[in-house]
Nucleic acid binder design. Structure first.
Length: 584
RNA sequence: GGUCUGGUAGUUCAGUUGGUUAGAAUGCCGGCCUGUCACGCCGGAGGUCGCGAGUUCGAGUCUCGUCCAGACCGCCA
């Protein structure tokens, strides 16, 4: 037996008992005749004490312990002479009688402490050491707790967790597939699933009308702080439901998680906002509604002034930053530089200060007199003390630039509190997106998404006008997940493939199994998938999802600890009948 | 595919206009220290300035290339 207790549980009431502990050496503090050693496991830290005058050999052995040695001790719990109120075990210490070194350790390349001195690169290379640190252990515990809560909730609601295969079939739509060669089927490849989409629909056809799975998905696309090549979804599907049945269940799940795991309760129902409204008011399909600062369109208000930037613009809109009329020239220049960054892409920024004394000062006074500016203020709901920031140009680009500016102002004004949670459902997405390069429509969500029934008649006349019965859950400007009511009618599905430019043969080749299934009584169904990693990082207050994952990959999709991906032996390639091509 | 930022001691960083032997903190090693808990004090070791070219009398510093890491744009149904 290695231990009678963990390193985090001994308290004053244990004084006088003999205990056995195992753990890692956090730190040794030698004070001449006396040595203190902190022993750590995932439950906490306990102080060991060695007294030279009582056992000189033992004290010397203790003094020779290095950081991260794995040790096993037997000793008596005693009351500390000087207590430490900062840690739960601070009232007691262990007077050690026996010390066994279970394993020595090299000095780790960074300190195993809450605030480590290690940089990201090093921490990733030695991830198993990084994972010893308490913030990471808390993060993985949070992830575990959330997983359990999700399973409990959905189980109680009558859902079955059903596994679906990882080795599936490559399909042309959507993200790039990760591909796996098949040895037994020469020159053929499996693909790893981008999501279990078609399988969960087949489970609906099979009559498992409430399905879920906490499941890995794989997409071979470029990465970001909140994107990994393999990530985890809470994947769900229900049959005999309409949109609001699904929203209710998963709004319920979201509220349950916040309450169980964070002790946070939402008031009332989540807002439902049509996509068009989200774009108009926030310039984004995932608006951060922790703060207001909505867009106000000014295209008509500012028309025909002689200011060519506005006059020639398809779209002019602005936001009102409360209490910012005192912004200095330097701050305004910085905002202008911000919107002109290539990533933001605006040509310039027009501002108008509504001064405390009621006067108005804009960067375009040459073209607009006081009355005109007053009218801006009225339309934009600005009051003395406020600052109006206005962008103009192509509608789509200007909306997205103004969205970035709004978020930047929210950041500068401290309106994006990590402990505030503002959820909403964005609904009624466009069904299709026109792609200019390939001159064809793409499904905005995926090709199995049902059009809104009222829009079905546009299929032949104006497909681009159709709205989808699709929805996203957005919290604090993060897309937590989304879903849709699916097409369950083989004729509509076939029409959808037509519109997406699939020939009958292609559709049959790629998705024939689904169309076939739909011939045998497919129930109306729909579902949702939440990004589990993102949800955990939102709960943990992280900017990146990486520290919610035990072994994440870096920016380039590499695991720097195991050094993957890697080359494989020629024999392996031969067996797979694969020949590598030299890079051009 | 693109834009930007960074790479100097085990680690985190500083390093001026291109100029003597590249510094600090921390960690590590040795010594002292009986109530520390960021222990303290004294001493010591520790450097391919990412890599390769170039400019120069002289490059950590300037130029070009390249590799690595991070953030973002494109991309991610």
């Amino acid at each position: 037996m290695y231990r009678t207790h963990t390193c985090g549980e001994l308290r004053a009431e244990n004084i006088g008992t003999e205990v056995k502990l195992s753990g890692w050496v956090q730190k040794t503090r030698e004070l001449g005749g006396m040595t203190f050693v902190d022993i750590r496991d995932r439950y906490g830290i306990t102080q060991l004490v060695f007294d030279d005058s009582k056992n000189a050999q033992l004290a010397e052995n203790a003094a020779n312990l290095g950081r991260e040695y794995v040790i096993n001790i037997v000793g008596d719990v005693i009351e500390r002479e000087s207590k430490n109120k900062n840690i739960p075990t601070g009232e007691i210490e262990i007077l050690v009688k026996q010390l066994i070194v279970l394993n020595e350790s090299e000095t780790p390349p960074f300190t195993i402490e809450d605030e480590t001195d290690g940089g990201d690169e090093l921490r990733m290379k030695y991830r198993y050491l990084d994972l010893r640190r308490s913030p990471l252990q808390k993060s993985l515990k949070l992830r575990h707790d959330m997983g359990i809560a999700i399973r409990n909730y959905l189980h109680k609601q009558g859902f079955y967790e059903i596994e679906t295969p990882y080795l599936i079939k490559s399909t042309p739509e959507g993200a790039r597939d990760f591909v796996v060669p098949s040895r037994m089927n020469e020159n053929q490849f499996y693909a790893l699933p981008q999501s279990p989409q078609t399988f969960k629909q087949l489970l609906m056809v099979a009559g498992y009308d409430k399905y879920f799975q906490i499941v890995k998905c794989f997409r071979d696309e470029d990465l970001r702080a909140d994107r990994q090549p393999e990530f985890t979804q809470i994947d769900c599907e229900m049959a005999f439901v309409e949109r609001d049945d699904i929203l209710n269940v998963f709004e319920g799940l979201t509220k349950y998680l916040f309450k169980e795991v964070k002790g946070f309760e939402f008031e009332g129902d989540f807002q439902k906002m049509p996509y068009d409204t989200a774009m108009e008011l926030y310039g984004s399909d995932k608006p951060d509604i922790r703060f207001d600062m909505k867009f106000v369109e000014l295209t008509k208000t500012v028309a025909n002034s002689g200011f060519v930037v506005f006059d020639s613009a398809e779209y002019v809109a602005g936001i009102t930053a409360k209490g910012c009329s005192e912004y200095t020239r330097k701050q305004l220049d910085a905002l202008t530089d911000f919107v002109k960054k290539p990533q933001i892409g605006a040509q310039g920024l027009v501002y108008c200060k509504y001064n405390e004394d009621g006067t108005l000062k804009s960067s375009v006074d040459k073209f607009f007199d006081a009355d005109a500016l007053k009218q801006w203020a009225e339309v934009m709901n600005a009051e003395p003390g406020d600052l109006m920031l206005i962008l103009a140009g192509n509608k789509k680009k200007t909306q997205s630039a103004l969205c970035e500016l709004r978020l930047e102002m929210g950041k500068q004004l401290g309106l994006m509190n990590r402990n505030t949670f503002a959820p909403l459902w964005v609904v009624d997405f466009p069904l299709l997106e026109w792609n200019e390069d390939s001159k064809r429509f793409f499904a905005m969500h995926h090709p199995f998404t049902s059009p809104k029934p009222d829009d079905l008649h546009y299929f032949d006349s104006e497909p681009g006008r159709m709205k989808a019965n699709a929805y996203d859950l957005v919290i604090n400007g993060v897309e937590i997940g989304g879903g849709s009511i699916r097409i369950h009618d083989k004729d509509i599905q076939s029409k959808m493939f037509d519109t997406l430019g699939f020939s009958k043969e292609e559709a049959n080749d790629q998705f024939g199994f689904l169309m076939n299934a739909f011939k045998y009584g497919a129930p109306p169904h729909g579902g949702v998938a939440f990004g589990f990693d993102r949800l955990v990082s939102l709960f943990a207050g992280f900017d990146s999802i990486r520290d919610t994952i035990a072994f994440p990959k870096n920016n380039s999709g590499r695991d720097v600890m195991i050094d993957s991906p890697s080359f494989i032996a020629k024999e392996q390639l031969d067996e797979l009948n694969i020949q590598l091509k030299a890079k051009q």
